[in-house]
Design a protein around this nucleic acid. Structure first.
Lengths: 219, 219
DNA sequence: TGTACATCAGTGAACGCGCGTTCACTGATGTAC
DNA sequence: TGTACATCAGTGAACGCGCGTTCACTGATGTAC
């Protein structure tokens, strides 16, 4: 939102700072609701308080800028999850903390999340999944599930396959909260717990678990 | 893709035909990968083989055109689900058929699905969920779950709350298949069955169900 | 210490383009008398 | 049957705008001698 204020020139030798400022400015625009497809190079430059051609001092093209913006936001999501997971010890709590952090990030930074998982981009269309930044992130989910199985807290099963169900479910509840705004969604925490419980069998104490024990009650 | 061919003028009294042709043309562009945000009035006119101002004979503005396009695609998704559900009798099979049809539609018509559930639009931001077209569609899912519970096939529970989990999960697996293209996704049918089983308890005979019975096998 | 020069961060003007929208029109087809 | 007119479906040219990108430049700061 820091539009229209004259930005002082960087001291010599630190021109690279503008690079970060541009990525940050793009992030601000995304948070403010601008779509990745409608995000313009000129708009980013304006937001950074800089002339449009200055962008070319650090990025070869608009696409190159957006690519770096995406990368920065991916890193930011990764950090949010890591931070949340680090606060707890046992594997079940860690799985929940990480999952919730993922959804919270998506809900709280919709523009950011959108460019990560809701926008197809030329690069990722070509690049293979294996070895990608995304694979590394997914692997921590797989590992989390595996730990819970190894600890005997979760139902036995293929951790990879289970993670293949959890990720989309988390993505779904976060993503639809943005699109279906009028929908009476259950609290996010409850829903995350319910998803993890449904796919891993870990008893997080959701309502459905309670109902399972009192199965014969009539609706 | 019917670009650049001279479209014959409609006979008098049937000018309204162009209206449908424009909506269809927009649909073709969406299928071809054009984004809703990048879809231009001029592009649609071009695809329909008509001059740009002709659009204004039937739509007040670009937004009005896109609104109608969205509505048409919603109707098309609804029909696809209805058609699939009608082929089977018992409630569990119907739930599966409808769910699979939903995902298939999303996967096979990504551009269409995208404008329905992955693009925020001014109208739906304002309009309440209750009474909307979306609510009617969601209700059929709730009803499907309720029938399964009533028939004693599904675990007892709140059908609405269960549908709140199923919808995002289905959305997730369909949506991420488009974004995470390189990911080694399990077959769509298996995944849909797994989701329904996890949230309703209906034994669709997925692998995880098998594993559940042979719980003591080591990983 | 003074000065010429190089480097560096960034700018202003201009380009060609496609966009949404407006406007006055064209020319075929139907209708009234 | 002939003709004047109305209706209807659609067009071509033009508008002002913001876009991505290129280009030659400016002016402050550092460095060599």
């Amino acid at each position: 939102m820091a539009t229209s204020e004259r930005r002082p020139r960087n001291p010599q030798g630190e021109g690279a700072r503008l690079r970060d400022e541009l990525i940050t400015a793009a992030g601000r625009l995304l948070e403010a609701g601008t779509d990745l497809d409608t995000l313009s190079l000129r708009g980013v430059a304006r937001e950074a308080g800089v002339a449009a051609p200055s962008v070319y001092l650090h990025f070869a093209s608009k696409d190159a800028l957006l690519r770096e913006v995406r990368q920065a936001h991916f890193e930011s999501l990764r950090r949010a999850i890591e931070l949340a997971s680090a606060t707890v010890q046992d594997p079940a709590a860690e799985l929940f903390a990480g999952s919730l952090a993922y959804c919270r990030y998506a809900v709280e930074h919709p523009g950011s999340y959108r460019i990560l998982f809701e926008t197809p981009h030329a690069t990722s269309r070509l690049e293979e999944f294996s070895g990608s930044r995304g694979e590394a992130a997914f692997r921590t989910l797989v590992d989390g599930v595996a730990e819970c199985i190894a600890a005997g807290i979760a139902r036995p099963g293929d951790p990879f396959r289970i993670a293949c169900d959890i990720w989309p479910a988390l993505h779904g509840i976060a993503s639809l909260r943005r699109t279906a705004t009028g929908f009476p969604w259950p609290p996010l925490e409850d829903q995350v717990r319910g998803i993890l419980e449904a796919f891993t069998g870990i008893p997080y104490g959701t309502q459905s678990a309670v109902e399972e024990t009192t199965r014969d009650r009539t609706t």
